[in-house]
C-alpha cells in the first residue's frame, strides 16, 4: 500500500510540473504587454522598458522559465503587479475559505445524494424514483448564480435565517458554519443532483448482478443484500465522480463567492482579471492546477483502498 501511494505521488510531480509550465508559456503568448497594461497607454517608451526590466520580461524566455521554476520550488509565485504583495501569501490567505466552501458542497452532495440515489433505485419507476429524477433534473439545470440569488432572497431577506453577506470570520464556529450553509447549498446542488443520478444508475447496474442473487440465496435480509453487497460495489464510481467534481466545484465557487460576498479565490480572480494582473492570474491558475492534481491523487489512493481489484503495486 505504501509503495502504491508513493508511486502515485511520484506520478503527480511531473503532472504538476507540466501544468505549471503550460500556464507559464500560455501567459507569455497571450496578446498584450503586461508593462503597457500596468502603466497605461500614455506611458513613455523609457518607462515601459524600465517596467519590462523590473518584471524580468526583457530576459530570454529560457532564463525567465528557469527563474520561474526556481521560484516555484521555493513556493514563490511572484508579486502581484497591482498591490505588490506576494501572490503566494495572498492566495494562501483566502484559499481556506474556498476550500471549506468546496468541501461543504461536496459533503452536502454525497451525504444527501447517495441515499437519494439508492432509495430511487430501490423504488425504480415508482413515485420516489420519479420525484428524485425530476428533482435532480432541476438541480442539474439550475445555474449557481440564479439559485444563490433565490436562496438569498428567501432565506436571508424574506425569512432572515442566514446572513446576507456570508462573512466567515464571526469568531465562532457556529457563525462560520452558518455562513457556509447558503453558499454551500448553492454550490453543491448540481453535484447533489449528479451524485443522486450516478448512484441510482450504479445501483441499477449492480442489483441484477449474479453475486446479488448469491447474497439472496444465503437467506440474507433485503437490508443486508442492499447495504452489505450492492452498495459496496455501486459506490465505487461515486469516488471517482467526487474527485472529478472537486475541481469543477472549486471553479464554480468563484461565482458563488461573488454572489454571497464571501472572501475566497473568486474575489481574487475577478480582481486580477479586471486589473490584468498577469502574475496573480498565473499564480492562481497554478494553484488551481495543483489542487486538481492533489485531489486526483487522493481519489486514486481512496479508490485503491476501496476496490480490491485495483493493483496496489
Amino acid at each position: 500500500m505504501l509503495r502504491f501511494v508513493a508511486k502515485r505521488m511520484m506520478l503527480a510531480v511531473p503532472t504538476m510540473l507540466l501544468s505549471a509550465s503550460v500556464v507559464f508559456f500560455l501567459a507569455r503568448i497571450l496578446p498584450g504587454d503586461p508593462a503597457l497594461s500596468i502603466l497605461g497607454d500614455s506611458a513613455s517608451e523609457e518607462a515601459i522598458a524600465a517596467m519590462r526590466t523590473r518584471l524580468g520580461l526583457d530576459q530570454p524566455m529560457l532564463v525567465q522559465y528557469l527563474g520561474f521554476l526556481g521560484d516555484l520550488l521555493r513556493l514563490d509565485l511572484g508579486n502581484s503587479m497591482i498591490s505588490g504583495h506576494a501572490v503566494t501569501a495572498e492566495v494562501l490567505g483566502v484559499l481556506p475559505y474556498t476550500i471549506e466552501l468546496t468541501v461543504f458542497a461536496i459533503a452536502f452532495g454525497v451525504v444527501l445524494g447517495v441515499p437519494i440515489g439508492i432509495a430511487a433505485s430501490l423504488a425504480r419507476n415508482r413515485l420516489p424514483d420519479y420525484l428524485s429524477r425530476f428533482g435532480s433534473l432541476i438541480g442539474l439545470s439550475c445555474p449557481p448564480f440564479f439559485l444563490g440569488i433565490c436562496l438569498l432572497l428567501v432565506f436571508a431577506i424574506w425569512v432572515p435565517l442566514f446572513p446576507v453577506i456570508s462573512a466567515p470570520d464571526t469568531g465562532t464556529l457556529g457563525g462560520r458554519i452558518a455562513a457556509l450553509i447558503l453558499p454551500g447549498v448553492t454550490l453543491g446542488i448540481i453535484f447533489l443532483a449528479f451524485v443522486a443520478r450516478s448512484s441510482r444508475a450504479a445501483m441499477l447496474e449492480v442489483l441484477p448482478e449474479q453475486y446479488i442473487r448469491t447474497a439472496r440465496m444465503k437467506g440474507l435480509s433485503e437490508r443486508a443484500v442492499v447495504f452489505g453487497h450492492a452498495c459496496r460495489n455501486a459506490l465505487l464510481p461515486i469516488v471517482t465522480v467526487t474527485g472529478l467534481y472537486f475541481g469543477i466545484l472549486m471553479g464554480n465557487a468563484v461565482v458563488t463567492e461573488i454572489v454571497f460576498t464571501r472572501p475566497g479565490l473568486g474575489k481574487l480572480i475577478i480582481g486580477a482579471l479586471n486589473s490584468r494582473d498577469y502574475v496573480m492570474l498565473q499564480g492562481l491558475t497554478i494553484v488551481y492546477c495543483f489542487i486538481v492534481v492533489l485531489v486526483n491523487l487522493v481519489t486514486d489512493i481512496v479508490y485503491g483502498l476501496v476496490d480490491p481489484r485495483v493493483k496496489v503495486r
Binding site: 449474479q210 453475486y211 442473487r213 448469491t214 440465496m217 460495489n233 465505487l236 476501496v306 476496490d307 481489484r309
Partner: peptide, 20 residues
C-alpha cells in the same frame, strides 16, 4: 433459503462479490 436449501451457481467469478 440459506437453511433448507442452497444453490451452487455457475461461473463463480460472477456469483461471488468482487469487493468482499
Amino acid at each position: 433459503r440459506g437453511r433448507g436449501m442452497a444453490v451452487v451457481f455457475q461461473e463463480a467469478l460472477n456469483a461471488l462479490n468482487p469487493v468482499l
